[in-house]
Amino acid sequence: MKNRREFLKTAGATAVGVSALSGSAFAIGEYFISSKETKPHAEEKTATRWGMVINTKKLNEEVIHEITTACHTKHNVPDCMTFAEPKDPKRKKHHEIKWIWEEHYHNAFAPDVVEYLSKKLEHTPFLVLCNQCQNPPCVQACPTKATFKRPDGIVLMDFHRCIGCRFCMAACPYGSRSFNFQDPRNGLPDRLPTNPAFPTRMKGVVEKCNFCAERLAIGKKPYCEEVSKGAIITGDLGDEHSEIRKLLEENNAITRKSSLGTGPSVFYLV
């Protein structure tokens, strides 16, 4: 009876094989609360494949500032410039953590850069973040399944499990991942989280945008979408009647480095 409350989801020799072959989230000796005793929140937002459309026409410096600040403060992303060590500002920048940030078209879409680019596109600020790839190279690289893809398409980090090998960072062709070169609390005011309801990270682990999984779980939209004044729309790419699919049907959208076959779930309207 005691074992009823929590149990080893996979155990024994067969499980080693299953775990290894299936590439599932489970591993030897990892405890899960029995799925009979757990459930998601009633209001949870679900999708078969989460995706995002960024309408670059609606992006400007002000909106971008709102978005990046909201994301970074709500997720306790440290400000590298406030690190006490290292002293040199250039080296402080080396320890930068970013989940969503601004890039020029030439960088965001390198190497597929068009000659004689329209003035507008040339000067449009682009927002880049984790693409939540359909076929994520980072997940393939991770030796501990600390990075894994959920059934709803979100590529998530399990910070408890990350060994800090940074293989995922070499694997990501979008530069979407950051490494905690020092305790991130060194870069938070008074070493306290800017959002106490969300954890910080620890030194030595990799992090990235989590598509606000913690928000979707309680039925809310991602922070970036909320403050984007319509520039960011998230939704279910797997549902052909969803708003996001309609947007993609009616507009010209591009994704970053589509030739690599990673299947980005973040689309840009240009």
């Binding site: 409350r5 929590e6 989230a25 489970f26 990892e30 405890y31 899960f32 609360i33 799925s35 005793e37 757990t38 459930k39 998601p40 929140h41 949870e44 894994f148 959920r150 709803d152 998530l156 399990d158 408890h160 999984a213 779980a217 309680i218």
Partner: peptide, 20 residues
């Protein structure tokens, strides 16, 4: 053990509520 189960169920299983 329960906390270990909680973190795995929340992070990896997407479950948020434990019914006891």
């Amino acid at each position: 053990k329960i906390l270990d189960g909680w973190r795995n169920s929340v992070v990896r299983d997407g479950q948020r509520i434990h019914m006891v």
